[in-house]
């Protein structure tokens, strides 16, 4: 299958071809790729692409997958509407 047709990050529509192009330019860790391609910045927060890209980086650098740093996990775990946060301000114990 053509690498241009393989979607790695479905939130931001990033293909395997784009990942390989950026690896070739020297951006060989997840944090680099995230900043330039937006992988991991969408609603799923790298839950889908994180491990796929970790594997691509491991193959590219010829290192073990466990030696490739995983992406930084940021809050929220799930998208939460701002109004739910703003309104839910009761002091609960």
């Amino acid at each position: 299958m053509n690498k241009k047709d393989i979607i790695i990050c479905r939130c931001e529509d990033v293909t395997l071809q784009q990942i390989h192009d950026y690896l070739d330019q020297g951006y060989t860790n997840f944090e680099d790729l995230k900043r330039l391609l937006r992988v991991g910045m969408g609603p799923c927060q790298a839950n889908t692409c994180g491990h796929l890209i970790q594997r691509e980086i491991a193959n590219y650098l010829n290192v073990r997958i466990e030696d490739v740093p995983v992406h930084k996990v940021r809050p929220m775990l799930l998208g939460v509407p701002l109004k739910s946060i703003a309104e839910d301000n009761d002091e609960e114990c």
């Binding site: 910045m41 609603p43 946060i85 703003a86």
Partner: peptide, 17 residues
């Protein structure tokens, strides 16, 4: 945000840093 731009209350937060 909701005080100044009430409409934004409908938006989901996906990430903070």
């Amino acid at each position: 945000a909701i005080h100044i731009l009430p409409l934004l209350g409908e938006l989901r937060v996906v990430r903070q840093w």
